[in-house]
Nucleic acid binder design. Structure first.
Lengths: 330, 330
DNA sequence: AAACCGTGCGCAACCGCTTGCGCTAGCGTT
DNA sequence: AACGCTAGCGCAAGCGGTTGCGCACGGTTT
């Protein structure tokens, strides 16, 4: 049925070993042999069996990618970038979605780890010890979470949050709300801390609400909690929540950008399409994904000198749109 | 380092074959043996090597999923559903993104086909012969494209389009525009044909523009092409294009829903968040994804009776929001 | 008591490819 | 002319499981 290396070898009157070398490591065989093998292989329609190769080489040519929620618009660009970068390195990527269930992360990682060369964990929600266990499963790089002893690509949340607060303060806002993300989210912790600090330094008062799931629906709830608050501006943990807030506000007849300023984080493609367009902190997801692949490959290829675990931090920047405006007089 | 079946066997004083059976097919060994093996395996931290198993069984426990663009919001729900359904069947999914390049589909499919049990091709753009070739690579189910001799899950575009046109005609529109999707897109052809027919039957005049890529930016261009047209309402190939049109119209000071009615197709999560909210034809992406997995499994498991290639057609329905309204008087 | 049978395991081949090592032949040295 | 070296291949042993077949043993039939 399917043509194997042995078949080609027989057709060429050579041994399988030679054919193998001719195909994968030309230069170790004579020029004629190489050409002949190449020709016969093509004629016979030979395609190497990747599984067999994996078994004997101990390398699968596959990387695992685990994300909390494929449907959250923050992740697709990352997934896409990982896929693209991996593809050009002749790797395939297996994808797992934990549906925001932290408990599933370890399980999924366990399953995948047995058939991939390395793992990329994006925005993992698991508690510290469990994360460590995941790290022990095999070469792993973390995105959006700092894990000691492991390469990670992080977002410079501190800087982004500072820009956000500066922007609001410049517009005259003195009472700012933060709509927190999942309690277990590392980036939520980062963002919260950074905002707190920025507010303190810039003389704004901060009120925190939440935690909220990163979903539009949660933003809708959040909007109602804002009712009794002093806040004239809110920063949401992510664009989804921000969109929910805006939708609900508009529904209640309030004008976002005038009566209330709303900022998102991620600058997902949505932000430009919403109404009003959403001011957001741009987070370079695609870049993060590509970088993660690079780091992983560094670990896989260069088992040399054991360089200190690389830690890449990506810059963010503020994108001002129309959901933020001058603080209303009271 | 890593503990293998042989290690466990030795520790138990048994042969590898027995251990293998004890683990995968209890019932073929005595109760005591089964328990002992299970215990020792656990103690030693044995985890089967999936690659080795794949090689000897000829089954990888992996399915391939190829989509045109992960970043297009229509696809993530499908991906998520496929992943979820596969996971509960103990399958992992490898994902490939062709970035809307039809030419890449066959290549990616070739690569994946060698390490998966089956393939799911979502909205493939390749021309007929190439599709056939993909189908020959191994068990394949197609989503959003009808491929004879292969299981496919389709969207009942005809019905959806008819609903769309009926809606517009009921609002008094007599000149309708269709913003076509990629020429090679099967669903674009379907939709175009269905709209054409519906317009003919319902007495509306149809003008087609495009083709356009399924991107917001393309919608922006499309909006400008609409300028000189008679059309008082447009149906876009997908939500993205529709959103682009709306954005551009608003920018030009026109009121979508009054001056011009706009409809999308897909009813992606975006539609509810846009401004104005987008009337759209709901396409059950998640359901399609899950169904595709089921069909694929049918093919893989039941090599029995060779039932006629199943063809599942999913229903669509109209979701009226505020981007469509009565036709303006002229 | 002899023939018979089912249960529980082990043997060994195999899945398809990679790779360390050894052999051979042809070449250049001295 | 005898010898060492190297380029080019083949042998065979894995990689870690699965599985058809046969064997031994204790227990039933007659």
């Amino acid at each position: 049925m399917t043509v194997t290396l042995a078949d080609v070898a027989q057709a060429c009157g050579l041994s399988p070993s030679t054919v193998s070398r001719a195909l994968s490591d030309p230069g170790r065989v004579s020029a004629q042999t190489r050409d002949k093998v190449a020709r016969v292989a093509r004629e016979m329609g030979y395609t190497p069996n990747r599984v067999a190769r994996s078994l004997s080489m101990g390398r699968t040519g596959t990387i695992g990618l685990i994300v909390p929620d494929v449907a959250n618009p923050f992740f697709p660009p990352i997934i896409k970038a990982v896929q693209a970068r991996a593809a050009r390195k002749d790797l395939v990527v297996v994808l797992a979605d934990t549906d925001e269930r932290a408990a599933d992360e370890l399980d999924r990682a366990r399953v995948l780890s047995k058939q991939v060369d390395g793992l990329i964990m994006v925005s993992p929600r698991s508690p510290e010890p469990r994360i460590a266990e995941i790290g022990r499963l095999g070469p792993t790089v973390f995105v959006n979470r700092h894990v000691p002893e492991h390469p990670s690509v992080l977002i410079d949340n501190a800087d982004g949050m500072r820009q956000a607060v500066e922007h609001l303060v410049a517009l005259g806002h003195r009472h700012i709300g933060y709509l927190a993300g999942p309690r277990r989210s590392w980036s939520n912790q980062q963002r919260h801390a950074a905002i707190t600090e920025a507010c303190a330094q810039l003389g704004a008062e901060l009120v925190t609400f939440g935690p909220f799931e990163p979903q539009v629906q949660a933003g809708v709830q959040a909007a109602d909690l804002l009712q009794g608050s002093q806040a004239t501006a809110v920063i949401a943990y992510d664009d989804l929540i921000a969109l929910g807030v805006m939708a609900r506000m508009s529904e209640r007849g309030l004008s976002v950008g005038r009566d209330l300023s709303v900022m998102g984080i991620d600058d997902s493609p949505l932000s430009g399409m919403a109404y009003p367009t959403l001011t957001s902190i741009h987070v370079p997801g695609a870049e993060a994904g590509a970088t993660a692949v690079d780091l992983l490959l560094d670990v896989l290829d260069g088992m040399h000198g054991e360089p200190p675990p690389p830690l890449v931090e990506l810059e963010t920047y503020l994108v001002v749109r129309s959901s933020t405006g001058p603080a209303p007089r009271r």
